[in-house]
Structures are given as structure tokens and as C-alpha cells.
Amino acid sequence: MSKDDTKQDMYGDKHPSIVPAYIFAFLFTCFTFIHIGNMIKYRGWFFLPFVLGGLLMSAGYHSKHMSLRDRTSLIKAAIAEIGILVAPALNAASLYMMLGRLTLMRPQKPRLSIIGRRWITAIFVIADLLSFFVQALGIGTIVSQQDLKKGEKPDEKLRKNGMKIVVVGACIQVFALLLFVLNTVIFQKREKKHYGGSNIIDPKLDHGMTKTKLFLVKNGKGADWHVLIGTMYAVSGLILLRSVFRAIEFLPSLADKVMGEDWALYCLDSLPMFFVLVVFAFVYPPAVLNEAKKRMEQAGMNNA
């Protein structure tokens, strides 16, 4: 273990295991490359933020296991903390873009969304970016108070302010996700009321998943939009779980008990975000939406 004897240990008296960091670094790297391949194959350029989120998570866990081997390195610890903390905001950005594109597949009237369909992506992505930068600012403030020489004491007030900033950023993300889910539910209900819940992507397909196989959805063939909506709910729930955990973790009153605990990080942050990559690896939204657009253009139904 490399160590600078003139600097304090970035992890203090905690001793996180290196093994889970190795495992998640490997898993996130593998699935991120799967998404890069899918993005190129299906020209899913709007999913670029999702790929960047995967790359950030990969870099975060690679840096984490390196920082655990060199526990006095500020740079490695900072990359680990920032990468893992802010990456889900990029994953969520592509999620919001999905709904924007889905609403454009229906006529403007009657209004199916509580937010104007051409504003959906902009509003949610702006909220997401705000969450991204606020959390990055907060974690940067916290990490700066860990880069100390032996015997120096951190500025507790500044450290706690950094925690509060992270909590604010996480709460912005939670609010945006809850509003997104509410908007999606209302869109789905109104769509069913006015269009009978017919398949936006292919009206010839049966309602629901009775004849839709998930492996067919990946390349857009036989794609049922209800499956796509279902994956949006699932991914929203996973990111929401993770964001709520992060908001609680950085509360100054709980930070010392939760922050740095292996079980909390890997069960309530790493696993949910890994499942997000897995879900969209099998039901790949750009492939489904591109196929939908192609079919609608062929049928003369393009409302975008």
C-alpha cells in the first residue's frame, strides 16, 4: 500500500474493502462498452449522456480501488467520490429525453402531458444539470477538507456545508425524478383515454406484453411502447432509490454512521445503478424509438 507519511489518511479510521470496488469497476466498464456499441449501431446519439454516466461510474470505481491502495491521494479519492456521486444525473438526462421523444409521437392536441411536449426535455435536463453541478460542488468542498497534513484538523463548518450542498443537489434530483414519474403517469393515462392505449410504436401490436418479447424490443422489432414505458418506470425507481440514499447519507447528523460503509454504498448506490445499465442494455430505447419513427414516417403519421 502506497502511503505518504506526511499526509492524513483520506479514509480516516474506516477500512473499505477493495474487492467490491474491483468488481463494480469491471461490471460498469463492460456494460458501458455494450452501450457504446449499441449507441453506434443504432445511432442513438441522444443516449450519449447515458454513456458518459457509465464512463464516469467506471472511472469512479477504478479510482476508488486505486485510492484504497494509496489512501493519502487526494486526486484518486476525489475522482472516485465525484464520479460515483454525479454520474446518475447523466443517466437520468437520457431518461428524460426518452419521454420527450415519446410524446412527440402523438398530435399536439389534446394535450397529453402536464408539461408542454417541446419543453419536457429542456426542463428536466436543466434540473438534472443543476443537480449535477451542485453535488459536484458539495463533494469537492468535502474532499478539500480531507487533503490535510498529519496533525491538521479539517474545517468542520466547511465540511458540513459541503454535505448540505450535496443533500440539496440530491434533493433536486429526487424532485425532478418524482415530477418525471408524475408526468409519465399522466401522459400514459391521457393517452389511454384519447387513444385507447394503442401502441404508439406499432398500432398493429397487441396491448401490453402478451406477444412482445424483450429480446425483440432491443432492436425495435416487435416493439411495444408499454414495454418502453415500463422500463422508464423501473429505471426511474432505481435512480430514485439511489438519490434518496445519497440525500440521507450526506445529512450531517447521519454522515458519520453511514458514509464510507461498504454495505450502504454497494447495496444502495452501486447495485441500483448497475441494474440501470442492465435494463437499458436489453431494452435499448434509441433502437425502439428509431424503429418507431421509421414506421410512422412510412405510414405518414409523423407528428414530430
Rank of each mutant, 00 (worst) to 15 (best):
L205K: 10
R117D: 14
N183S: 14
T210H: 11
L130M: 05
H207M: 04
L130E: 00
V174F: 03
F133T: 09
R118D: 15
K164N: 15
N161K: 13
N183D: 10
V181R: 02
I120D: 04
V168Y: 08
I115V: 15
R118I: 09
I165W: 04
A136Y: 11
K164V: 08
G197T: 03
L205C: 07
S131W: 03
F124V: 06
G208I: 13
I126N: 09
L129I: 04
S144V: 06
D155V: 00
R117S: 10
K149F: 14
T141E: 04
D128L: 13
L182H: 13
L177H: 01
D202P: 06
D206V: 06
G138F: 08
L148P: 01
V185Q: 07
V125I: 04
V185M: 07
K193W: 02
T141W: 03
A176Q: 05
G140H: 15
K189A: 10
E156G: 04
K164H: 14
P203M: 03
G116T: 14
V174W: 04
G197R: 05
D147V: 05
Q145F: 06
R117A: 06
T141R: 04
K189R: 15
K157F: 05
F180G: 00
K157D: 05
C171E: 14
G208N: 12
S198Y: 11
G138Q: 12
T121P: 02
L179Q: 07
T210P: 02
K204A: 12
N199K: 12
D155M: 01
F124L: 05
I142M: 10
G169K: 03
N199D: 13
D155T: 01
M209C: 06
G169D: 02
T141A: 05
E152S: 12
K157Y: 10
K192H: 14
F133E: 05
G197C: 05
L158Y: 01
V181Q: 01
N183H: 10
I115F: 15
L205D: 03
F175T: 01
D206N: 11
C171S: 12
G116E: 15
I115A: 15
K193N: 01
G197L: 03
K204F: 09
K150T: 13
A136R: 12
F132M: 09
F187L: 12
G169E: 01
G169A: 00
Q145D: 01
I126Y: 08
K189I: 08
M163G: 08
E156D: 09
